[in-house]
Simulated assay, not measured.
Amino acid sequence: MKWTERDIPDQRGRVAVVTGANTGLGFETARALAGHGASVVLAVRDIEKGKKAAARMSGDVSVQELDLTSLESVRAAADALRATHPRIDLLVNNAGVMYTPKQATHDGFELQFGTNHLGHFAFTGLVLDLLLPVAGSRVVTVSSVAHRIRAAIHFDDLQWERSYGRVAAYGQSKLANLMFTYELQRRLAAHGTTIAVAAHPGLSDTELTRNSPAVIRVLSPLIAPLASQKPDMGALPTLRAATDDAVLGGQYYGPDGLGESRGHPRVVTSSPESYDVTVQRRLWSVSEELTGVKFPV
């Protein structure tokens, strides 16, 4: 049986925070959650774009400024959420950048690693205590099939200071998303019912691909009709990971089609490298050092 948006259970009474929710996959995720009754917070860098996105959704939707490229902004957003929301049922770490030219965050981290992994690592750690007491709460982090492409955690040059390859750097950041999820789940297992789950959208037609290498941009119009899908379909693995009562901590959801490029969501398997517990733990320790954020688990 194919899981669709219609299978989302009643979300009334749940508070969901979705990063990068003003466009693409994040918008579709937030829209569906709000449409099923959740109180949704759009955690976005651009407040005005967030307000316009919220106006296009039905239900209880609010906007919170969050710039994942700035640890100062991450801390401010966490403090603001703490002041307005005594509990969070669902955190969806969706925002991201892809294949960007070499740039640094406000704190000097390589932009893709700093945004996709370190920003979400810090944000999760700073709000996690709002989820821990809540039965059935979840942290869902969005990875990518690109975690398999030239991907490794380069501890000797995490910020790509010696050389930079934007495809490999993106792969590292998405591999880090998975390793973070698996290590977080291991830590959560002894603390109540909060779980950590990962998802990926397959190949989805969103603004995220605007920085793709030239060869990918040239081929995309030819490949897209066969391989990619619209954002509302691409969001389904995240939505299933976020809402399906059968989901277990540490699972990874993606499309069921050929090569996991498109289709309906199911449990999938990540790369062998992603399950390396030693690397997961080392990445966690390094991430704590770089962000200055310690988790309550």
Results as ranks from 00 to 15, higher is better:
A214T: 12
L226R: 12
G192E: 09
A235E: 01
Q251V: 10
L226K: 10
A189F: 11
G171E: 02
L208N: 02
L188W: 03
K230C: 07
Q229W: 12
A242V: 12
A224K: 11
L222E: 10
S204E: 05
A242Y: 05
G250Q: 07
S212H: 00
P237L: 07
T243F: 08
P221T: 09
D232P: 00
Q229M: 14
I216W: 11
Q185V: 14
K174I: 13
D245V: 14
K230V: 13
T209I: 15
R186L: 12
T209R: 09
L226D: 07
L236P: 03
R210H: 11
V167I: 15
V197Y: 03
S212Q: 04
G250R: 02
G171T: 03
H200E: 06
L203H: 00
H191V: 15
L208F: 03
P225F: 12
A241I: 14
R217P: 06
A224H: 05
Q172M: 13
G192K: 05
L188Q: 02
L219T: 12
A242P: 05
T181E: 06
A196L: 13
L184N: 01
Y253C: 09
L178P: 00
T181K: 01
L188H: 02
I216K: 02
T193G: 08
P213C: 08
Q185I: 14
A199N: 04
A241K: 04
N177P: 03
S220T: 14
S204W: 02
N177R: 01
L222P: 04
L236T: 13
S220C: 08
Y252F: 15
L219W: 14
Q185M: 12
Q251A: 13
Q251T: 13
D245W: 07
Y170I: 06
P201H: 07
M179F: 09
G254D: 07
A190W: 05
T206M: 09
E183N: 06
V218H: 08
G249M: 15
T243E: 04
V167C: 04
Y182L: 13
L226Y: 13
P225Y: 11
E183K: 01
P201R: 03
Y170H: 01
L219P: 02
V247F: 12
T194W: 11
L178F: 06
L203Y: 03
L222N: 07
Y182C: 02
L222F: 14
Y170V: 05
H200R: 05
T243I: 13
Y252W: 13
P237I: 03
P201L: 10
L184M: 10
P221I: 12
